[in-house]
Structure formats: C-alpha cells, structure tokens
Design a protein around this nucleic acid. Structure first.
Lengths: 210, 210, 210, 210
DNA sequence: GATGAATGAGGGTTCATTCAT
DNA sequence: TATGAATGAACCCTCATTCAT
C-alpha cells in the first residue's frame, strides 16, 4: 500500500529480499511481497516473473552487489597490508547495513545449495576470488596457501554472519535470561577482533608462503 | 517407507529434523515427514501433535542434545587448558555427524528468532554457558572477559557451522567452476585451525583478564 | 452436492465427462466437476489427479468403452452380411445414449489432436480396426479396399455424430425460425438411411475388390 | 508479430478465428489472439470489443462467408442435376481451404448450441436453405422429402467435416501405429465418394418424391 | 493404535479487462 | 490511435488437519 517512489522492479526486489530473508523460499508468501512493495500481486508476475524467478533475481542481485562492492574495495586498496582490513570492514558494513543479505546466504547454505540457480554460483565465485585477493593468495597459488585462505574466508564470513544474525537472538536471550551475556556485542567488536587475529599471524604466514 | 526399528516417536522426530533442516518450517511438508518416517500422516498428529508442536519438539531435542553433549564433554575435561580443545572438537563432531543440526540452527537465526519457542531458549542458554566454561569465563565474570568470550564463541561456532554447511556448495562450485578452490577442505582442518588460533593467544589473554 | 451411490472415482469421471464435453478442456472448471460429482474439489486430486490427468482418464475410458462395445458386437455377429448393420446400430446406440461421447470426440478433432494423450490413440486404433471388420476389410487388405473402408468409416461416424450433436441446434433453429425443417429427425432415421446406403452398393463393391 | 497488410479489424478477426478454432471459447487467450494478429491486447477491445463479442463476430463472419459462397455457387448452377455436385465441391473447398471453419462449427455443436448468439442462427438457417436448394427440396416441401434432404445434408456435411478434421489425427495415428490405415485419404476422395453415392440413388429418389 | 479419505483454507498463477499516457 | 502497466477475479492446485473406521 505504501507507494514509495523509485523503480517498481527495484521496489519489488527489495520487498522480496526482505520476505525471502525470513522463512526462506518456502516460507515466503507472494502476497506478503506484494503488500510490502505496495503493488498488486499480479504486477510481480508482469514485471519480474514467478516465485522461483523472483528468488533467483533476489539472490543474484544481492550476491552481485557484494561481489562488486568487494572488488571495488580491493581495487581501491593498493596496499596489500591494508587489504585484509578493508575487506573485512567492507563485508561487515554490507552485512550490518542489510540483514537480509547474510540471512538469505545462510538459508541457502541450510538448504545445501540444492536449489541454487546457476547465475548465483558465478557471483559466489567472484566473492571467493575477492577473499583470495584480500588474503594475498592470487594466481597459480600453492594449495597449502589455498587451504589457509579458504579457512580464513570461512572464519571471517562465518563470524561476521553469526555476529549479525545472532544479535536478535542474543537480545531475546538477554531479556529472557537475566544472567545471559553477549547481548551488547557490536559488529565493530568482531571486526576489530578478526583484524587483530588475522592481521598478525595470518598475513606474514601467507606472505612467506607458509 | 523405511521401517527401521525403534520408537515411532523417535522415528518421526528424526524424519522431521531432516525435513525441517531443508526449507525450514515453511518449506517442510507433513507428507514428506510422514513418508520419511515410514508412518501415516495422521500418526504424526496422534503421537506428537501439529506442525508447530513438531517443530518445537525437534528444536528442543536437537539443542538439548548439543547442550548435554557439551556439558558431558566439559565435565570430563578437568584440565582447563584442554577444555577449549575438547569443546571445539565436540562441537565439530556434533555438526559433522548430523548436518541437520547446524542447518536448523542457522535457519532459526535467519528468522531472527522471531518464532523461537520458549523451551528452545533455555537450551540455547545452556549451550552459551558451556562456551563460557570452555573459555574459562564463569561465575560473575568481568565484562571485558565476557566480550572476548562471546567473540570467541561466535567465531568458533560460526566457523564450524560455515565449514559444515558450505561443503555442499563448495563442491558444487568446484564442479561448476574448474578454477575454484576450497572444495577439499575438511572440518578437521578447521578444528586444527581454530585450536591453533585460540590455543595460544586467547587462553592466556583470557586468564590474565586482558 | 448430490450424493449418489456408486464408486467415487466413477462418479468423478462421469461428472468430468459431462463438464469436459461442453467447453472442452479449456472451458471446464474443476469446481464444476466437483459440484456435479458431489465431492470436494480436493477429492478429485486425491483420487484421480490434476486436470490434465483427469481429461486423459475421461478420454481413455470413453474410447475404451466404445472399442469394447464394438468388439463385443462384432464378435456376436458371425454373419458377415449382418455385421455392418450391427456395427452402425451399436455406434448409434452409444452416441445417442450419452451425448458426451461424440461431443468429446469432436472437440479433440477440433483441436487437431494436438494434445491427444498416447493411451487415447491406442483406443482409437482399436475402433478403427472394428470398422475394418464391420466392412469386411481385414488382414492384409488391398489399399483400394482400405480407401473405401476409411471413406465409409468417416461417412458413418461423421453422419451419426452430426445427427446426435446437431439435434439441440436443430431444435433451437426450429424455435427461432418457423420455416426451418429437420428438427424432428431421429437417429433411427439416420441408421436406416446409412444401412440402406451401405447395405447394397458398398457390400458387393467391397467383396469384389472394386 | 506478423504485420501483414490489411485492415486491423480483419487481421484481428482472422487471428481470433484461428485461436478460437483450437480450444474453443474457453481455451482461447486474448493474449494469443493479440500476438497472432500483431496488435496490442488493448487494441482488440478498442476495435472490436470483449471476448464474447469477438467470438460472436468470428462465428457470424465465418458462417456468413459459407452461406454467401454457397448461395453464389447455387446461383451459378442453373442445371438442377449439377447442383448437388457443385454444392458438395464448394463445401469441400471451404472446409479444406480453412480448417478453422469446420473446427469452430464442430465446437459449437459440442457445446449443444448453448451459447449460440442470435445472429449466428440466422446464418446457419441460410446454409440449411442452401442445402435444400442443392437437393431440390424447395418451397412448401413434402415432409418425406424433407427428411431425406436433412439426412443427406447431415451425411454430406458430417462426412466432409470429419474428413478434414480427422486428417491430423489420422496422420498421428499412422505415425504411432505402423499398421494403421487411412492416413493418405484426401478430401477429394470423399467428394468423389459422396457424389457417387448421392448422384444416382438420391437424385432420382428425391425427384420422384419417393 | 493406525489409516484411507475428506476438506476448508489458502497459495501461486493466469487472465480478461481497464486505464493513463 | 495505440500501448505498457495495473488489477480484481478467478482458477488450479496443495496442504495441514480432522474424522470415521
């Protein structure tokens, strides 16, 4: 009902991202997407397509946005030493700015990528390649270095995603259980923690080809 | 269809866990659960209840299993120095033995805990308390140490979960993109990585109250 | 709503035949079929399947009934001279007893057999073979005789179908246009006409292999 | 998409005839008609009207064309003996030139004329009157002769329609069942067959008032 | 205890039709 | 005159749930 300005396709895609991010594909209602976008249900089909197509478009646009942002960030960080820092900060910014992104990512993982549309895979590859650049593992890399790069990637992304997504649950826990702790942890804390961890032990190790 | 032995309720709960783990609550079909459990659809209602009740039972039983396993593990690790190691290994074992566990956990996070039944929160608190024990942060802890404990918890769990759940996607990526890397990374690698990272810098830091 | 006795599947199939016979596949409403059969809409899907499957079942059962009736009729008419007569009468009886049969046949023809399910083709072949038997054109027949057999088949079936199906329109015409004629023509008249036509000139012609 | 020359209304009507001829009224999609006519969907409403109106226009124009062609044919056949021949040939030409005509006719019959618009009835009456002329049954005719005239009409039209419309199915049958026969039967064969049948026995019989 | 059958509610999708430009 | 966009009303189909046996 809310007739905000902006391109209608963009409005629908944004609403779809929000709705898909809770409940996943199976839990999303086209009706909910339409209402949130302020358009008629049939308009979704007219402009973008059916539910599966819509889901794919959401995934691709979100992952592409991540890939492009990371690539741009790395391009603007010529100093190899600062790259990791920039990279982690960029990821954290993306995740905390829009919770639907890590939310959707995580749901796809939960589904074991069973229904991952092809175009999404390409974008994920781009992201993985960014991680490699950030960690200084590029070109025909030795597999030992690859392994540590992937490990670092998983730790970084996993930690950031968990930090963002557990926040609502942590707050809920804090309200329900007085003695709980961790409710006032911000993503900035995690960024600092990760940079501290990887800044020293990993950087040199990788540069020396350990 | 598979008429394995064992209690009917247990069979249904296991099947439900499997089905809920993909697609989440919204994507699960009672029909699919019944078929996987080898029982009639109506039997689910007779023995356990409706879909929401079934979901709660699955969540509680899974999280309780995690809590109990971790508590037992910590009880059997009197040496504080070895506790972290045991804890991480126990988590990794739980996650890799049954993918549905991290899968369900992650989906709940994606839903921002919006529909978390009360009993599930209790189990999650138990798990968080285990983490505190593993990190040596017990009792009326200082908040600075708490912060690092929670950070460590998030890094550890997030990394392990990501390692388990990204495996299918990583393999898919490897098949789709020849140049991809990371497909042959095992959870053991991640365990070693985490222990190495936290074994030295974290332990002392925490004990000294840094 | 009318809860007549009898097997529920049979009831649905009969109702479906009636509804499909008007409007064809595209004009049929599952709702209408359910109401006519006196069952819930979902019951159709439970017992028989979706619209396309239902359509196929209707077609197959109707054509199979025709084929079996004709085969039985011919088996019981050992006298070759009387076969044609029995055959035409059997067809006429089938058509006039249940208008949905020629109605559905004709709609499929109108659709150029574009969507004819495979099983239906088999039944149509059986019917064509019956015509051949009725006309005394069996076994390795000469093509000249085949041609006349097919011609006769088309004339017979076409005439009977038209006689049955034009009746409502003829009556409507008679009511609308006082001077119209042909409204009081019965299918018996057509049977007699056809037998008279084919009884003499065709029989000998075929037997002599003209 | 095909932007052929000619009046837009004519283009739409032709496309509508084609689309209505398959699937009937219920199976036709305005979208399909618009696409086939190479016009915008809204243009149909602007130029001709809604779906029901369009259907009526198609029926009337088709039947009127038949009536006018037959009347012209009969006017140009002063010889009563040759009339029947001309008539049958004209019908066969109409049917084989444009399959949509018999196709639409037949679908209306299947619907038991339930939704026949009034103007269509007038055109059908004209056609029936042509048949009467062709058979030499005009004016205040004796009912016995009427009966045979209507019978002949039904046989002739039914046979021609069946010959045209069964052709796709016969070819399909021939492809599916190697032993099938009748696939290479042309409408010319049927015309000859009908003229042969009615040329001798019917003509005299009718003229003598049998 | 167990199950085939039944069904109301709702979900995704299409479609004829209209409207603003 | 022409058309992209918009939409309410179905329509097909599914699903969670219940019930009779």
């Amino acid at each position: 009902m809310v007739k905000r300005g902006g391109d209608i396709k963009a409005r629908i895609l944004e609403a779809a991202g929000e709705v898909f991010s809770r409940g996943g594909f199976g839990g999303a209602r086209m009706e909910a997407i339409a209402r949130l976008a302020g358009v008629n249900k049939a308009a979704i089909y007219y402009h973008l397509g059916d539910k599966a197509k819509l889901y794919e478009l959401v995934l691709v646009s979100r992952f592409r946005n991540v890939a492009e942002t990371l690539e741009r960030t790395l391009d603007q960080s010529p100093d190899p030493a600062a790259r990791l820092d920039s990279y982690v900060r960029a990821l954290a910014a993306l995740f905390s700015r829009d919770l639907t992104l890590p939310s959707i990512m995580i749901q796809e993982l939960a589904g074991r990528g069973r229904t991952l549309p092809g175009p999404v895979l390409s974008e994920m590859t781009r992201i993985l390649r960014c991680t490699a650049r950030a960690l200084g593992v590029e070109g025909p890399a030795a597999s030992a270095r690859d392994l540590r790069a992937v490990l670092a990637h998983l730790v970084i992304v996993g930690s950031l995603v968990f930090t963002c997504l557990t926040r609502p649950v942590r707050e809920k826990l804090a309200r329900a259980v007085p003695a709980a702790f961790g409710q006032d942890l911000d993503i900035e804390d995690m960024v600092a923690f990760l940079v501290e961890m990887f800044g020293r032990p990993l950087g040199p190790g990788l540069e020396e080809g350990a």
